[in-house]
Every structure is written in structure tokens, then in C-alpha cells.
Design a protein around this nucleic acid. Sequence first.
DNA 1: GTTGACCTGCTTGTATACAATATGAATACA
DNA 2: TGTATTCATATTGTATACAAGCAGGTCAAC
Lengths: 236, 236
Amino acid sequence: MPTVRGTAKSVAYEDLKRAILTMERQPGSPLEESELCDRYGLSRTPLREVLQLLSGEGYVTLQLNRGARVSDMTHYTLRDFFLAAPLIYSAILRLAAQNATPAQITELKDAQEAFRTALTSGDVTDRALTNDQFHRITGHMAGNSYLQASLDRLLIDHTRIAMTFFRPNSGAKEDRLELACRQHDEMIAAIENGDEERAAELALEHWALSRDQIELFVMPAGLEAPLGAPPKQKSA
Amino acid sequence: MPTVRGTAKSVAYEDLKRAILTMERQPGSPLEESELCDRYGLSRTPLREVLQLLSGEGYVTLQLNRGARVSDMTHYTLRDFFLAAPLIYSAILRLAAQNATPAQITELKDAQEAFRTALTSGDVTDRALTNDQFHRITGHMAGNSYLQASLDRLLIDHTRIAMTFFRPNSGAKEDRLELACRQHDEMIAAIENGDEERAAELALEHWALSRDQIELFVMPAGLEAPLGAPPKQKSA
DNA sequence: GTTGACCTGCTTGTATACAATATGAATACA
DNA sequence: TGTATTCATATTGTATACAAGCAGGTCAAC
């Protein structure tokens, strides 16, 4: 879908995506055309097309006569996120279990390998990006363009949020990362066995783990969560 | 989100959207830049930006060095559609019931008024477009950007498909349109009362009606449905 | 008669020059 | 001293000229 263009342009496209996902470019920060032209060695026309493309995918927000900014994350964003995530993640993983091809399963295993390596290496951005990649592949497996539109947007913000709690200084949370990693393994197994129920279940468990981390980060004092309950699931 | 631009550009943007939704421009048909430049009185640069924008929203597909085409609809598309629609529509309507503002409810009532008029006037494109507009407003009410991404894509194809069965020559289907219209009324009531359960239920009923029409159209001879069974409904 | 390469024309991709709009500072006035 | 207005500057939006890539047809060779 992203229609990866000729090299010069695709470098800009990929690097901007990376920089936004890793919070190297912070939510809401402006993206000046001239700066990006210099950085990537493009003229304004193709660079603007990259920004349009990123805008369509939700990485960037365009404002008339005011240029582009990194899409921001407010507490409203987070509220929407908490509502949509369990719904979409479980649906995606269910479909992934139904439709995954052997080639995609291999790809997913490779991504998991990379994630595991990133966990031991301790590099924050590697952890976030390899985790992101893992979940994007499940999206490809599901192969549903409608749901993928939501998944892609969820992953943008999920990865940005994750950048905060993938930090190694979190201390006691290392075991949680290990649990997340094991859940990935179980997901692969469920997908490989075509066990859609288990896959959907794992998606929800995985989300619950992630959600707890996010809540701890957003509400460190242990406040109650008034941000909105996720809709009831019909998962058996 | 669409960042509606200065008039000249927004005319092109809106008119292309309309032409695609009404199947005036058929799925897969090429969109030549020079033709569109002449038609809308734009130079190529801003016109290309419009196409990029439409691409990001799923109306148009861009291919490297091969220009733009109207996004096509295959039976794969339809299969994905059947899977995603009940999930998203019910979630959207549930959230709409939770979050709708009085202003939005007024807007929705106006849209319903327009839809009812279109049903009696008998113009096919009016029926499809006013129905589309009704459902897009429910999307705004839900106010969840993640789910809205899926809804927007669903509505593109739903409206295009609907163009086939909103035709007045369908004979006995007029009463079904009347039923759809009454369901809209009930949706408005449920949203106004904040009755999210009923709203979600209505979304599924409304979808079931639409699904039956689609199945009749796709498999006119009464064939069995091999395109993928829709997920189990919990509609009462 | 078929197949292959080449060449012409057209469409798309890129760069740059020009126009329009917004931002911020300086100044005049209350 | 505070506020409003004006002007200068910078950034974005648009048009056009140029380069690159693809498509179709012709011609030649097998």
C-alpha cells in the first residue's frame, strides 16, 4: 500500500517513519520542508509527496498554509486507543490464524528472533521497532485491508507509547518484557496451528499486559482508570 | 482530517470522491493527470497532491511510474468487507451512542431527512450519497480516529456496492430500503438516548439487511456463498 | 509468419521559479 | 505601559519547464 518509491524518496519516507515511531521526532513537532529537503537531498515537490503519504497513514498531520507536524498524542488519543486496541488486535490475530501463509510465518519467526535479540541487547529503539514489526506482520497475515487501516494507526501510537516503557531503567519490568516475548512465541504457535480462538485470546492477554504498562506510566500514582472501558468482547 | 484545501483544490478533491463513490469512475479505471488538470483547472502539482490525499484515504491507488487508478473491488475485497463490516459498524455505533454531541445529533437528523427525500425522489446517486453521509456522521460521533480509519474505508466500498442495489428497477426491494430508513430512525433514537447496546444491535441488524442485498447481487442465481462466511452475529 | 529489437510519442517524476499566506518585530497611538 | 497596526521576512502553495520511464508500433532478421 505505501507504494515505496524510488530510492531517494523511500529513504526519506522510511527514515521519517522511524524517527516518528521512536519519538526522535516528538509528537506535535513541526516538519519544515527546507530542513527535510537538505537532510534527504530531495527537492520540495517529492518531499511534499512523502509528507502527503505519511499524512495518509497517520504519521503526520498537514495544516493548510501551516505545513506539516508530527501527529500528536493527547489524552484523547490515549482514550481512543484503549477502546480500539483490544477490538482490532483480537480481530487481526484471529484472521492471521485463519489466513497466514508459510512464508509469512517464517517472516514472523524472523521478526520474533529480532525482537528477542533486541530485548537482550537493551537498545530501546530496537525493542520498540522490532516489536512494531512483529505486529505489523500479523496485520499482513490477516490480509484485511479495512482492519489493517485501524491496525496501522494503532501501531503508530502503540510503538510511540512503548518507547517510554521499553527503557531498561524501568527495573522490575524486565520480567514483563520477557512475558511479552513468550506471548509472541505462543502467538506464532497459535497461528501456525490455525487456532484462531487461542490467537484472539493471546491478543487480548498481550494487550492487557501492554495496557497495564501504559496505565502505570500515565497514572504513576495509582489513580483509578476513568479513561473508558473497552467494549465487551464476544470471544468465546 | 482530510485538510480541505483552497477552493480550486477542494473542488477536485470532493468531485473525485463523489465520482468514485457513485461508480461514475469505475473501480480500476485510470486517472490521467492531464485530463484531471483540464477538468478542474489545476496545474499538475496540486492535482497530484489531491491524488496523494485520495490515495491515503483509500479511494485511489498509486503505482510507481504508472499513475493513479480508482481503487478496485475484487471478490477478495468483498470477502474482507464481510468480515470487517459487522465488527466496525457495531463498535462505531456503540461509541456514537456514548459520545454524540447535540450538534452532531442535529446533523444526523438532517442527513436522515436528506436520505428519506432521496428515497422518494428516486435518484440512485442521491440515495447512495445521502446514506453514505449518514453513516459517516455516526463515525464522527464515535470520535475514535483508529476505528474511523476502518470505517472510512468500509464506507467507500459499501457505498460503491450500494450503487448497484439502490437502483429503482430492483422492484420488490423498495420495502427493504424503507426498512433501512426506519433503522436509521431507530439509530438516531438509540444515540439520542445514549442506549449503546441498542445502537450496536441496530448496527448489526442494519448490516444484515445490507449484507443480504449484497449477496443477492453478487450471487443472483442463488448460488451458495463461497466468498467467506460472515462471523457469527449476536443480534437478538 | 513469427519473433525480436529499436524507436517514437506520451505519461509520469523532479526541480526550480514565482505567488500567496502567515509569523514576528517594530512603531505609533491611547 | 499596554495595545493595535503595519511592514519585513520566512514558509508554504502553485505553475511550468525539464528529465526519466513506459507503451505501442514499425521494421528487420530468423
